[in-house]
Amino acid sequence: MSEEHSFTLDGRRIPFQDGQTVMQAALEAGVYIPHLCFNPEFTPHGSCRVCLVKVNNRMQAACTTPAADGQTVQSETEEVRDIRRGILQMLFVEGNHVCPACEKSGACQLQAVAYYVGMLAPHFKHFYPRRPVDASHPEAVIDFNRCILCELCVRASRDVDGKNIFAVEGRGIQAHLVVNTPSGQLGATNFSIHDKAAQVCPTGSILTKHQGYNIPIGQRLYDRKPINIVGDVAQLSESLGGRRHD
């Protein structure tokens, strides 16, 4: 019998198997590390940087850092929370995130993670970019104002649905989500609300039409319990309030 691999996370022993990342091992052990671009069903991306942890005194993204024996990982410290909060605030000022007027409010992972890291205000100067809303599809609407460039829809459409409907174009602050058609309109694609890509958005960017307020605000997933208890909305079955923007 070989000895079990493990590292410590905020003092707690976390077992892991070869090839697992810090994030995967923590999730498996039932420990929540906040994240947005990470989704256990997909290859780690490492772009949002929200899952930053301190590994042996160096800040690293938990989703891309291989777990190693004897590692000391710090997650819920004031230092780490400050940085995560700063990154969340950057995401909020980069786009146009108006939670009180958003139909995803209460079931939005971005909002729930912001609450989790103690973000009370966006702090930085708002960019107020001019971005369109695409309601050309009969069943879904894309509000680009809320996109955080996690590329989960890009990955889901390409790798799971086999449709390759989404892409990110442009460089730096000009980077933006596009729909792969000459018109750029979702209505011109074979996108369906049953696609994986329709179910992975951690914000209110991709919404299903005609059911926005079936569950009233105040009674939604994260209105009832924080994200570290209930997990990602995209990960939960519909009966538990996931998969749909309730």
Partner: peptide
């Protein structure tokens, strides 16, 4: 390049 949040947004801030 615009890939990660703190560089994409932080450089502009």
């Amino acid at each position: 390049c615009g890939f990660c949040t703190p560089c994409r947004v932080g450089t502009s801030l």
